[in-house]
Nucleic acid binder design. Sequence first.
DNA 1: CGTCCACGTCTAC
DNA 2: TAGACCTGGACGG
Length: 258
Amino acid sequence: MPELAELKLSAQYVNEQCDGKVFTSIKKNPVHKGLEITPPAKYFTIRAESKGKEMLLFINGQTLKFTFGMAGSFKMTKTGEERKHSHLMFYTNDGYTLSFVDVRRFGKWKWDGWNKGRGFDPTTHYEDFCKDIQENLDHKVFNNPIGEILLNQRFFNGIGNYLRAEILYKANQDPFEEARVAIKNNPKIIAYCNTIPLEAFMLGGGQLKQWENPFGVEPDRFTKWMKCYGNNNMNTVRDRNGRTLWYDPKWEPKTELI
DNA sequence: CGTCCACGTCTAC
DNA sequence: TAGACCTGGACGG
């Protein structure tokens, strides 16, 4: 998705765009297999909050939870000018539409709160995020390589494929080292789970192929900021989940771990 | 034309 | 631990 930084930017965008707006209806694109959404009132307002890789829309006291899959984003347009691949549309009483746009339709929505199976957001609740990991380091998932565990949303809510690559690379961390050992010996890993997503947020987020950035930020700055993910000078390996792990070629994959 | 790849979950053998 | 879920861009023949 859209990882932590992009979810955070999306919440900010929705809040800016929906400030003072009054909404009157919601429609789902029939091509999408997701849930039909009925507005809770004749007139309603929208505000957003993100946590890791989830976002809540607060709609008159109810919360509609979104995950963005590989390509989700929100876009406000004039009604009638909605973008291709808009799948859930919120219409205002003055001719605007807030659309959830998602080319690949992996994104989902549901009347729900935060998923309890996911951990703390390392940018908004850093102390809790650290404590949660420290208190559970004896858990067997931390036997796995650090490069793999960084995508585990129970502990690293919001970290996705480009963030893990940047965190490991900038922390000068061997991705194939046992997570428990890596976390004990290299405090930069945990610290960078906070600062690197925040840097990405301040740069306007990822501008990779799948995700059309709705904020109009120059893509250049972000691409220059990314040092590891997608860089031809780096090595890649398929992790056990079939995702491509980008890493500094100075490290050697340990076949018994990945 | 075809094959491979993509910022992520899910659920079903 | 494979697929399944999707569209589309890059690149090869």
